[in-house]
Design a protein around this nucleic acid. Sequence first.
DNA 1: GGTATCGAATACTCATTGGTATCGAAATAT
DNA 2: ATATTTCGATACCAATGAGTATTCGATACC
Lengths: 212, 212
Amino acid sequence: MSQSDEPLPEPTPRTPRAEVRRRLLAAAAKVFAERGYADSRLEDIARAAGFTKGAVYSNFGSKQELFGALLRERSDTESTAVLAEVRGGGDLGDALRGAARLVARRIVDDTERGRLGLEFAARAAREEPTREVVAALRRAQREAASRAIAEAARRGGRGPAVDPELAALILHCLTNGLSMEHLADPAAVSAETAEQALTTVLTALLAPPPRS
Amino acid sequence: MSQSDEPLPEPTPRTPRAEVRRRLLAAAAKVFAERGYADSRLEDIARAAGFTKGAVYSNFGSKQELFGALLRERSDTESTAVLAEVRGGGDLGDALRGAARLVARRIVDDTERGRLGLEFAARAAREEPTREVVAALRRAQREAASRAIAEAARRGGRGPAVDPELAALILHCLTNGLSMEHLADPAAVSAETAEQALTTVLTALLAPPPRS
DNA sequence: GGTATCGAATACTCATTGGTATCGAAATAT
DNA sequence: ATATTTCGATACCAATGAGTATTCGATACC
């Protein structure tokens, strides 16, 4: 009883640096996504992560650099779930429909992703350094899509109806276009609509419509 | 000889108000397109138009309002050249190819348009009032496309292979997606590539590939 | 010709915010 | 234990640019 009735300063263990960095990036993603780069206050990002500006400048050299780090992080993290879906066993038609549904879901559910993508694109359009990173990211995405398509076409029996690279570009751009449209006019692009659009193009490119 | 050897102040005729407004809007389009909304200085816009900030505030209530006016102006002006191309007489296949070429050209040549569109979309994604205007503009575009497609399908003989509205959404989003891709990674989307992508989808949607 | 009005130029304000310098507590080394 | 380093918090600064108040000249009107 003699030792402690006082507040007991309880020496706070310091958050691991890597964790600080991670939280800051997550907060940056959120804030950049919902306000855009220019309208995002460095202090708001820090606060959202549970820190102060000091933490930001301790981990990143500048606002621009934080943005770049986020962009690079996303480049690495880019999910390949879609490809797995396409590669999954079973009927090719089912696989394609599954992939379409997955992408459509992401378009309407994960708006942060879409918004960030839009912000990345907007900045890439006018900033050379950003453009280089974004271009690389997109190339990698199209490349992956291209491979998946080639595989699907092979699986589908007859040789590729269209050049897989072209098909990849089409699907990639259609996806991004749908995402953008959903952000600009949510009512116009429901999950079902997006899915239908993707399925339509996907099957048109890979599997000539089952003639009646 | 007695009257004038002096510099002769040459009273400058005042620019008509409508003209001032027009030039300001044109300058705003240019500056907003190349720097984005937030990084555009009102004074730079004014200067680019040959005036000063005073002119801006005399014609528009605020920066946001200038942006809105520009957006609305573009809504009205939206060209219907594409539709004309599709409607033009001759073979349907040729008409479609012509339309695809036209759109592809615009994607790579008129970057101001693409950049502005991106900026509009980005702001629409996070600002309710802007979103309303942008959504209306896009709906109108899709609507027009939808009608053109319905007509083309009818002209092509058999009844519409796919719902014209869905086809319109697909082509609209693909176009915007290609435009965005071109801005983010110009090398990936040449005029030829874009044209091929559009033609492929267009014919797949409207005219089942000529069976070999 | 003189006066009122209109519209753009000029000069200023004021809030905002990226960046910096410094501080202090926790971790680490000695 | 104590010195040193690390790293985030705090306080501050300078620049920037939207918006405003005012001026001044050109057109319109009497």
